[in-house]
Simulated assay, not measured.
Amino acid sequence: MNMPKKLHTPKRFGLLLVGSLVLLVVCMLASLAFGSRTVGWDELLDGLFRPAVQSYEADIVRQRVVRTVFSFMCGAALGVSGALMQSVTRNPIADPSILGVNTGAALFVVVGIAFFNISTASDYIWFALAGALLTAAFVFGIGSLGRGGSTPLKLVLAGAATSAALSSLVMAIMIPRSNVMDQFRFWQVGSVGAGTMDSIMTFLPFFIGGIVIAILAAPSLNILALGEELATGLGVRIGTLKLIASFAGVILCGAATALAGPIGFIGLLAPHLVRLVIGADERYIIPMSALTGAILLTFADVAGRLLGSPGELEVGIVTAFVGAPILIALTMKVKVRGV
Protein backbone atom coordinates (compact mmCIF):
# COMPACT_ATOMS: atom_id res chain seq x y z
CA MET A 1 0.00 0.00 0.00
CA ASN A 2 1.49 3.36 -1.05
CA MET A 3 0.50 5.93 1.50
CA PRO A 4 1.34 9.63 0.82
CA LYS A 5 5.03 10.15 1.40
CA LYS A 6 6.04 12.15 4.42
CA LEU A 7 8.48 14.28 2.50
CA HIS A 8 9.18 16.54 5.44
CA THR A 9 9.72 15.87 9.09
CA PRO A 10 7.61 17.60 11.72
CA LYS A 11 10.72 19.60 12.63
CA ARG A 12 11.03 21.01 9.11
CA PHE A 13 7.32 21.73 8.98
CA GLY A 14 7.71 23.57 12.28
CA LEU A 15 10.50 25.70 10.83
CA LEU A 16 8.36 26.53 7.79
CA LEU A 17 5.46 27.36 10.05
CA VAL A 18 7.57 29.71 12.15
CA GLY A 19 8.98 31.35 9.03
CA SER A 20 5.49 31.88 7.64
CA LEU A 21 4.28 33.38 10.92
CA VAL A 22 7.22 35.80 10.92
CA LEU A 23 6.47 36.81 7.33
CA LEU A 24 2.79 37.25 8.20
CA VAL A 25 3.68 39.53 11.13
CA VAL A 26 5.91 41.61 8.83
CA CYS A 27 3.08 41.96 6.29
CA MET A 28 0.60 42.91 9.03
CA LEU A 29 2.98 45.55 10.44
CA ALA A 30 3.41 46.92 6.91
CA SER A 31 -0.37 47.02 6.58
CA LEU A 32 -0.57 49.09 9.76
CA ALA A 33 2.26 51.44 8.77
CA PHE A 34 1.76 52.15 5.05
CA GLY A 35 -1.08 53.84 3.23
CA SER A 36 -2.12 57.30 2.12
CA ARG A 37 -0.25 58.45 5.22
CA THR A 38 2.80 56.52 6.44
CA VAL A 39 3.27 56.31 10.20
CA GLY A 40 6.50 55.83 12.11
CA TRP A 41 7.43 53.19 14.67
CA ASP A 42 6.58 55.34 17.69
CA GLU A 43 3.20 56.25 16.22
CA LEU A 44 2.60 52.57 15.45
CA LEU A 45 3.28 51.68 19.08
CA ASP A 46 1.00 54.52 20.22
CA GLY A 47 -1.87 53.19 18.14
CA LEU A 48 -1.39 49.57 19.22
CA PHE A 49 -0.38 49.70 22.87
CA ARG A 50 -1.02 53.20 24.23
CA PRO A 51 -4.76 53.85 24.24
CA ALA A 52 -4.27 57.01 26.30
CA VAL A 53 -2.43 58.60 23.39
CA GLN A 54 -4.88 60.49 21.20
CA SER A 55 -3.38 61.68 17.92
CA TYR A 56 -4.26 61.62 14.25
CA GLU A 57 -1.56 59.03 13.47
CA ALA A 58 -2.55 56.76 16.36
CA ASP A 59 -6.19 56.87 15.19
CA ILE A 60 -5.08 55.88 11.69
CA VAL A 61 -3.23 52.86 13.10
CA ARG A 62 -6.28 51.79 15.12
CA GLN A 63 -8.47 51.99 12.03
CA ARG A 64 -5.95 49.96 10.06
CA VAL A 65 -5.97 47.22 12.71
CA VAL A 66 -9.53 46.27 11.69
CA ARG A 67 -8.59 46.29 8.01
CA THR A 68 -5.51 44.15 8.66
CA VAL A 69 -7.40 41.55 10.71
CA PHE A 70 -10.13 41.43 8.07
CA SER A 71 -7.50 40.96 5.34
CA PHE A 72 -5.89 38.13 7.30
CA MET A 73 -9.21 36.33 7.74
CA CYS A 74 -10.25 36.69 4.08
CA GLY A 75 -6.85 35.53 2.80
CA ALA A 76 -6.78 32.53 5.14
CA ALA A 77 -10.35 31.56 4.21
CA LEU A 78 -9.66 31.75 0.48
CA GLY A 79 -6.41 29.80 0.83
CA VAL A 80 -8.06 26.93 2.70
CA SER A 81 -11.06 26.99 0.35
CA GLY A 82 -8.74 26.59 -2.63
CA ALA A 83 -6.83 23.75 -0.95
CA LEU A 84 -10.07 21.88 -0.25
CA MET A 85 -11.41 22.31 -3.78
CA GLN A 86 -8.13 21.20 -5.33
CA SER A 87 -8.10 18.13 -3.11
CA VAL A 88 -11.74 17.17 -3.68
CA THR A 89 -11.57 17.64 -7.46
CA ARG A 90 -7.98 16.32 -7.71
CA ASN A 91 -7.30 19.31 -9.94
CA PRO A 92 -4.25 21.48 -9.13
CA ILE A 93 -5.71 24.51 -10.90
CA ALA A 94 -9.13 24.44 -9.24
CA ASP A 95 -10.17 27.34 -7.05
CA PRO A 96 -13.43 29.07 -6.09
CA SER A 97 -13.33 31.55 -8.98
CA ILE A 98 -12.56 28.93 -11.65
CA LEU A 99 -15.38 26.68 -10.41
CA GLY A 100 -17.87 29.55 -10.55
CA VAL A 101 -18.50 29.81 -6.79
CA ASN A 102 -17.55 33.50 -6.64
CA THR A 103 -19.88 34.34 -9.50
CA GLY A 104 -22.77 32.48 -7.88
CA ALA A 105 -22.22 34.45 -4.68
CA ALA A 106 -22.07 37.68 -6.70
CA LEU A 107 -25.35 36.91 -8.48
CA PHE A 108 -27.22 36.38 -5.24
CA VAL A 109 -25.76 39.57 -3.76
CA VAL A 110 -27.01 41.49 -6.81
CA VAL A 111 -30.43 39.88 -6.46
CA GLY A 112 -30.47 40.84 -2.79
CA ILE A 113 -29.53 44.45 -3.55
CA ALA A 114 -31.97 44.79 -6.45
CA PHE A 115 -35.04 43.04 -5.05
CA PHE A 116 -34.61 42.83 -1.27
CA ASN A 117 -32.76 46.10 -0.51
CA ILE A 118 -30.00 44.39 1.47
CA SER A 119 -27.20 46.61 2.75
CA THR A 120 -25.69 45.07 5.89
CA ALA A 121 -22.87 42.54 6.30
CA SER A 122 -25.20 39.92 7.75
CA ASP A 123 -27.56 40.25 4.78
CA TYR A 124 -24.72 40.04 2.28
CA ILE A 125 -23.26 36.93 3.86
CA TRP A 126 -26.48 34.88 3.81
CA PHE A 127 -27.28 35.77 0.22
CA ALA A 128 -23.70 35.09 -0.89
CA LEU A 129 -23.58 31.76 0.92
CA ALA A 130 -26.83 30.66 -0.70
CA GLY A 131 -25.49 31.58 -4.13
CA ALA A 132 -22.13 29.89 -3.50
CA LEU A 133 -23.71 26.66 -2.25
CA LEU A 134 -26.24 26.39 -5.08
CA THR A 135 -23.60 27.15 -7.70
CA ALA A 136 -21.17 24.61 -6.26
CA ALA A 137 -23.89 21.94 -6.23
CA PHE A 138 -24.84 22.78 -9.82
CA VAL A 139 -21.24 22.70 -11.08
CA PHE A 140 -20.47 19.41 -9.35
CA GLY A 141 -23.75 17.96 -10.64
CA ILE A 142 -23.05 18.99 -14.25
CA GLY A 143 -19.45 17.85 -13.97
CA SER A 144 -20.57 14.40 -12.81
CA LEU A 145 -22.82 13.71 -15.79
CA GLY A 146 -21.80 11.38 -18.56
CA ARG A 147 -19.30 8.57 -18.74
CA GLY A 148 -16.56 8.45 -16.13
CA GLY A 149 -18.35 10.66 -13.63
CA SER A 150 -16.66 13.84 -12.51
CA THR A 151 -13.19 14.55 -13.87
CA PRO A 152 -10.98 17.61 -13.34
CA LEU A 153 -11.50 18.72 -16.92
CA LYS A 154 -15.30 18.37 -16.80
CA LEU A 155 -15.49 20.29 -13.51
CA VAL A 156 -13.39 23.16 -14.86
CA LEU A 157 -15.46 23.35 -18.05
CA ALA A 158 -18.70 23.22 -16.08
CA GLY A 159 -17.41 25.95 -13.76
CA ALA A 160 -16.32 28.18 -16.63
CA ALA A 161 -19.62 27.79 -18.47
CA THR A 162 -21.65 28.38 -15.31
CA SER A 163 -19.58 31.43 -14.39
CA ALA A 164 -20.12 32.94 -17.86
CA ALA A 165 -23.87 32.36 -17.68
CA LEU A 166 -24.20 33.80 -14.18
CA SER A 167 -22.08 36.84 -15.13
CA SER A 168 -24.57 37.56 -17.90
CA LEU A 169 -27.42 37.39 -15.39
CA VAL A 170 -25.57 39.79 -13.09
CA MET A 171 -25.26 42.32 -15.90
CA ALA A 172 -28.90 41.82 -16.96
CA ILE A 173 -30.06 42.69 -13.44
CA MET A 174 -27.68 45.63 -12.96
CA ILE A 175 -27.87 47.52 -16.23
CA PRO A 176 -31.52 48.70 -15.92
CA ARG A 177 -30.98 49.68 -12.26
CA SER A 178 -28.45 52.45 -11.78
CA ASN A 179 -28.75 52.37 -7.98
CA VAL A 180 -27.84 48.66 -7.94
CA MET A 181 -24.92 49.27 -10.28
CA ASP A 182 -23.56 52.05 -8.04
CA GLN A 183 -23.75 49.87 -4.94
CA PHE A 184 -22.49 46.71 -6.60
CA ARG A 185 -19.57 48.03 -8.65
CA PHE A 186 -17.49 48.88 -5.57
CA TRP A 187 -18.15 45.45 -4.07
CA GLN A 188 -17.46 43.66 -7.37
CA VAL A 189 -13.84 44.84 -7.62
CA GLY A 190 -12.86 43.07 -4.40
CA SER A 191 -11.56 45.10 -1.49
CA VAL A 192 -10.72 44.67 2.19
CA GLY A 193 -10.85 48.42 2.79
CA ALA A 194 -14.53 48.36 3.72
CA GLY A 195 -14.02 45.80 6.48
CA THR A 196 -15.45 46.77 9.86
CA MET A 197 -15.61 45.16 13.27
CA ASP A 198 -19.18 44.15 12.46
CA SER A 199 -17.90 42.43 9.32
CA ILE A 200 -15.27 40.56 11.31
CA MET A 201 -17.77 39.38 13.93
CA THR A 202 -20.22 38.31 11.22
CA PHE A 203 -17.46 36.42 9.41
CA LEU A 204 -15.95 34.80 12.52
CA PRO A 205 -18.27 31.79 13.05
CA PHE A 206 -18.10 30.82 9.36
CA PHE A 207 -14.32 31.27 9.39
CA ILE A 208 -13.76 29.12 12.49
CA GLY A 209 -16.27 26.46 11.41
CA GLY A 210 -14.80 26.10 7.93
CA ILE A 211 -11.20 25.92 9.18
CA VAL A 212 -12.06 23.32 11.84
CA ILE A 213 -13.91 21.11 9.33
CA ALA A 214 -10.99 21.38 6.89
CA ILE A 215 -8.45 20.32 9.52
CA LEU A 216 -10.59 17.39 10.65
CA ALA A 217 -11.06 16.24 7.04
CA ALA A 218 -7.34 16.41 6.17
CA PRO A 219 -6.40 12.78 7.07
CA SER A 220 -9.27 11.39 4.99
CA LEU A 221 -8.35 13.68 2.09
CA ASN A 222 -4.87 12.14 2.16
CA ILE A 223 -6.45 8.71 1.68
CA LEU A 224 -8.70 10.04 -1.10
CA ALA A 225 -5.55 11.14 -2.96
CA LEU A 226 -4.64 7.45 -3.34
CA GLY A 227 -7.70 6.87 -5.53
CA GLU A 228 -11.40 6.46 -4.87
CA GLU A 229 -11.41 2.66 -5.10
CA LEU A 230 -8.58 2.24 -2.59
CA ALA A 231 -10.07 4.90 -0.31
CA THR A 232 -13.39 3.06 -0.34
CA GLY A 233 -11.59 -0.17 0.52
CA LEU A 234 -9.97 1.57 3.49
CA GLY A 235 -13.38 2.57 4.84
CA VAL A 236 -13.61 6.17 3.62
CA ARG A 237 -17.11 7.26 2.62
CA ILE A 238 -16.16 9.10 -0.55
CA GLY A 239 -19.46 10.88 -1.11
CA THR A 240 -19.74 12.06 2.48
CA LEU A 241 -16.12 13.22 2.56
CA LYS A 242 -16.46 15.20 -0.67
CA LEU A 243 -19.71 16.75 0.53
CA ILE A 244 -18.27 17.83 3.89
CA ALA A 245 -14.98 19.13 2.44
CA SER A 246 -16.79 20.96 -0.36
CA PHE A 247 -19.22 22.48 2.12
CA ALA A 248 -16.34 23.81 4.23
CA GLY A 249 -14.66 25.25 1.14
CA VAL A 250 -17.84 26.89 -0.08
CA ILE A 251 -18.76 28.53 3.24
CA LEU A 252 -15.22 29.90 3.61
CA CYS A 253 -15.22 31.27 0.08
CA GLY A 254 -18.84 32.46 0.21
CA ALA A 255 -18.43 34.31 3.49
CA ALA A 256 -15.21 35.99 2.35
CA THR A 257 -16.77 36.92 -0.99
CA ALA A 258 -19.87 38.33 0.68
CA LEU A 259 -17.88 40.79 2.77
CA ALA A 260 -14.85 41.59 0.59
CA GLY A 261 -16.13 40.97 -2.92
CA PRO A 262 -14.96 38.34 -5.42
CA ILE A 263 -11.17 38.34 -4.89
CA GLY A 264 -9.60 35.93 -7.34
CA PHE A 265 -6.46 33.80 -7.50
CA ILE A 266 -5.66 33.63 -3.76
CA GLY A 267 -7.41 30.26 -3.55
CA LEU A 268 -5.37 29.04 -6.53
CA LEU A 269 -1.93 30.38 -5.62
CA ALA A 270 -1.76 29.71 -1.89
CA PRO A 271 -2.22 25.90 -1.89
CA HIS A 272 -0.19 25.52 -5.08
CA LEU A 273 2.79 27.33 -3.55
CA VAL A 274 2.44 25.27 -0.38
CA ARG A 275 2.47 21.99 -2.30
CA LEU A 276 5.66 23.02 -4.08
CA VAL A 277 7.37 23.50 -0.72
CA ILE A 278 6.01 20.84 1.64
CA GLY A 279 4.58 18.10 -0.57
CA ALA A 280 1.15 16.51 -0.73
CA ASP A 281 0.16 15.93 2.90
CA GLU A 282 -3.15 17.71 3.51
CA ARG A 283 -2.46 17.85 7.25
CA TYR A 284 0.29 20.33 6.41
CA ILE A 285 -1.24 21.89 3.30
CA ILE A 286 -4.42 23.17 4.97
CA PRO A 287 -2.85 25.19 7.83
CA MET A 288 -0.03 26.41 5.59
CA SER A 289 -2.53 27.43 2.89
CA ALA A 290 -4.33 29.53 5.51
CA LEU A 291 -1.09 31.32 6.42
CA THR A 292 0.02 31.69 2.81
CA GLY A 293 -3.35 33.04 1.71
CA ALA A 294 -3.29 35.57 4.55
CA ILE A 295 0.25 36.64 3.60
CA LEU A 296 -0.60 36.98 -0.10
CA LEU A 297 -3.77 39.00 0.45
CA THR A 298 -2.25 41.26 3.11
CA PHE A 299 0.79 41.88 0.91
CA ALA A 300 -1.46 42.60 -2.09
CA ASP A 301 -3.43 45.09 -0.01
CA VAL A 302 -0.24 46.91 1.05
CA ALA A 303 1.05 46.86 -2.54
CA GLY A 304 -2.23 48.35 -3.79
CA ARG A 305 -1.97 51.19 -1.30
CA LEU A 306 1.65 51.96 -2.26
CA LEU A 307 1.15 51.66 -6.02
CA GLY A 308 -2.02 53.76 -5.99
CA SER A 309 -0.77 56.44 -3.61
CA PRO A 310 -2.17 58.94 -2.70
CA GLY A 311 -5.25 56.79 -3.37
CA GLU A 312 -5.16 53.00 -3.60
CA LEU A 313 -5.63 50.12 -6.01
CA GLU A 314 -8.25 47.67 -4.80
CA VAL A 315 -6.78 44.37 -3.73
CA GLY A 316 -8.87 42.45 -6.27
CA ILE A 317 -7.10 44.35 -9.07
CA VAL A 318 -3.67 43.57 -7.64
CA THR A 319 -4.37 39.84 -7.19
CA ALA A 320 -5.81 39.61 -10.71
CA PHE A 321 -2.81 41.43 -12.21
CA VAL A 322 -0.38 39.04 -10.50
CA GLY A 323 -2.49 35.87 -10.59
CA ALA A 324 -3.58 35.86 -14.25
CA PRO A 325 -0.13 35.22 -15.77
CA ILE A 326 0.62 32.62 -13.09
CA LEU A 327 -2.65 30.82 -13.91
CA ILE A 328 -1.70 30.80 -17.60
CA ALA A 329 1.71 29.34 -16.75
CA LEU A 330 0.16 26.66 -14.52
CA THR A 331 -2.39 25.75 -17.17
CA MET A 332 0.37 25.28 -19.74
CA LYS A 333 2.48 23.09 -17.43
CA VAL A 334 -0.06 21.03 -15.54
CA LYS A 335 -1.47 17.92 -17.20
CA VAL A 336 -5.09 17.95 -16.18
CA ARG A 337 -6.65 14.49 -15.89
CA GLY A 338 -9.14 13.91 -18.65
CA VAL A 339 -7.39 16.00 -21.34
Score class of each variant (00 low, 15 high):
Lys154Pro: 10
Gly82Val: 10
Phe203Pro: 02
Gly235Phe: 02
Leu48Met: 15
Leu23Ile: 10
Gly304Asp: 04
Phe13Leu: 15
Leu129Pro: 07
Leu153Val: 15
Phe206Gln: 06
Leu306Trp: 12
Asp301Pro: 14
Lys11Arg: 14
Met3Ala: 07
Pro287Gly: 09
Met73Leu: 15
Ile244Lys: 02
Asn2Ala: 06
Leu221Val: 07
Gln63Ala: 13
Ala218Gln: 12
Arg283Pro: 01
Gly293Val: 08
Asp281Pro: 07
Ala214Thr: 06
Ile173Leu: 11
Phe72Leu: 14
Thr135Asn: 11
Leu234Thr: 09
Ile98Gly: 06
Ala30Met: 15
Val69Ala: 15
Val39Met: 07
Leu45Tyr: 08
Gly279Arg: 13
Val139Trp: 08
Gly40Ser: 13
Phe108Val: 05
Val80Asp: 06
Tyr124Lys: 02
Gly267Phe: 11
Arg237Asp: 12
Phe70Gly: 02
Ala94Lys: 15
Ile118Lys: 00
Met3Asp: 00
Asp42Lys: 00
Thr202Glu: 10
Pro152Glu: 12
Leu21Val: 12
Ser246Cys: 15
Leu234Asp: 07
Ala270Asn: 09
Gly261Glu: 06
Ala114Val: 00
Met201Glu: 09
Asn102Met: 00
Ile251Tyr: 04
Asp95Phe: 07
Val109Ser: 00
Gly239Lys: 02
Leu273Arg: 01
Asp198Glu: 13
Leu224Cys: 05
Ile125Cys: 13
Val80Glu: 06
Ala280Leu: 12
Ala280Met: 11
Leu134Cys: 14
Gly338Leu: 13
Val109Ile: 11
Met332Asn: 14
Gln86Trp: 01
Leu32Gln: 11
Gly338Arg: 08
Gly210Thr: 07
Arg50Gly: 12
Ile113Phe: 01
Met332Pro: 00
Ser144Gly: 11
Gly249Tyr: 02
Phe108Glu: 03
Gly308Tyr: 13
Leu23Gly: 11
Ile125Gln: 08
Ala300Lys: 04
Ala218Val: 07
Thr257Ser: 06
Pro10Val: 07
Ala121Gln: 12
Val139Ala: 11
Arg50Trp: 14
Thr202Asn: 12
Pro176Trp: 06
Ala194Lys: 15
Ile328Trp: 13
Gly227Pro: 12
Leu107Thr: 03
Thr257Trp: 00
Asp123Pro: 14
Gly279Lys: 14
Leu166Ser: 06
Asp198Ile: 01
Leu221Gln: 08
Phe265His: 03
Val26Ser: 04
Phe116Thr: 00
Gly293Gln: 05
Leu276Cys: 15
Ala30Val: 07
Ala76Glu: 04
Leu243Pro: 00
Cys74Pro: 10
Tyr124Asn: 06
Met1Ser: 14
Ser309His: 15
Arg283Cys: 03
Gly79Asp: 12
Val65Trp: 02
Asp42Phe: 00
Ala290Leu: 14
Leu99Gln: 04
Ile278Asp: 02
Ala114Thr: 00
Ile200Ala: 05
